[in-house]
């Protein structure tokens, strides 16, 4: 095998051990080392393997005991949206085919009963492995905010380039494995470019396949960057409402303060309180309890006020500030500290 050639990781999930052994040996041999075949006899075995090994393709038997193939397919689609999935079945019906394809399977094929059939399946899977879907989509920034799109990509730990265009300019935000790593617009790059792009009030965006940027210019946690952007956008909007035109430096770099703070801790939870991401929290249980209490307090305050829904709580601390956000689907806590002048 050519050392530079990529080895494809393929997981076969089937309760029939004989079938697994057969295709494992045959397909490995036919691929001439291009396939690394993994075998699982049940859904839970497959999930254990997926925890430790990123796969290019999962081939799942549609008729498995306990958790049947279609349910497992749904689970895979939710947990591993980028994983290609193929369903194998001993009894193909049109109804089952529609069900599988509708739940994220790329192919729905009958289990082969001959060596020729096995060879055909191998060729199909090999072809699927090299096939790349037409990636990227287009959308208008109207109902969906740019921050929402970035948040989805980061929470999903995706890698992509977000190309944003409005009437005045266009720029790009690079996301790698769920981290904001680079942004560029006009002559700006890094956090200033990110802030500029996030201050756009309208335009269009396109998600492009990830490419390594020429340099990494952003290192801060995305949660803080997005919250800071929200705060700055509020301030600029307020100044505009007051008739104060933001000065050029302000619009080009709406948040100089971001360079003077450092994120000290971050906690992100689902709306139900499941910890999704935690970084340097001295006691995340305490922070989670605070977020949940704040959610209750905010609801009580909202009932007294004609201000609509609660968005966030900003706390000015002696050595920095904290932002707590409570939404139906997420709870976020970020604390930042002011940097010393010599830092």
């Amino acid at each position: 095998m050519n050392d530079t050639q990529k080895t494809n990781q393929i997981l076969f999930v089937d309760d029939d051990n004989v079938f697994l052994d057969t295709i494992g040996e045959l397909f490995s041999a036919w691929s001439h080392g291009r396939w690394q075949v993994y075998r699982a006899q049940s859904a839970d075995q497959a999930l254990e393997i997926l925890k430790v090994q990123k796969m290019d393709l999962a081939v799942v038997d549609a008729n498995m005991p306990v958790l049947d193939g279609v349910q497992f397919l749904r689970l895979l689609t939710r947990r591993h949206p980028d994983l290609k999935k193929v369903m194998l079945t001993g009894l193909a019906t049109e109804e089952r085919r529609s069900l599988c394809l509708g739940n994220g399977a790329e192919l729905f094929i009958e289990k082969p009963r001959s060596s020729d059939g096995l060879r055909s399946v191998f060729v199909m899977l090999d072809e699927l492995m090299t096939w790349r879907p037409r990636e990227g989509f287009q959308g208008m920034l109207r109902k969906v905010g740019l921050q929402d799109v970035i948040q989805m990509e980061c929470l999903g730990r995706n890698s992509c380039i977000l190309e944003i265009t409005n009437q005045q300019s266009s720029g790009r935000i690079y996301i790698e494995d769920g981290s904001l790593i680079h942004a560029v617009v006009e002559k700006l790059s890094g956090e200033k470019a990110l802030q500029k792009l996030l201050s756009f009030t309208g335009g269009s965006f396109q998600l492009l396949p990830f490419e390594t940027p020429p340099q990494r210019t952003i290192n801060g946690p995305w949660e803080f960057l997005l919250m800071e952007a929200a705060r700055v956008t509020d301030e600029i909007a307020q100044k505009k409402a007051d008739g104060v035109e933001p000065v050029a430096a302000e619009t080009a770099s709406p948040t100089e303060t971001i360079a003077n703070v450092t994120v000290a801790e971050t906690l992100i939870c689902s709306g139900a309180g499941e910890v999704l991401y935690e970084w340097q929290c001295p006691d995340f249980i305490l922070r989670l309890a605070l977020l949940q209490n704040i959610t209750q307090s905010a609801a009580a305050l909202a009932a007294e006020l004609p201000f609509g829904n609660f968005d966030r709580l900003e706390i000015k601390l002696g050595d920095g500030r904290a932002v707590l956000q409570s939404r139906a689907d997420r709870l976020v806590f970020v604390r930042a500290e002011n940097q010393l002048a010599s830092a």
Partner: peptide, 16 residues
């Protein structure tokens, strides 16, 4: 109780 000592806090809603 969570080791935060606010100088002040701002509860931000959609319209106020």
């Amino acid at each position: 109780e969570t080791n935060l000592a606010p100088q002040w806090s701002t509860w931000i809603f959609e319209q106020g």
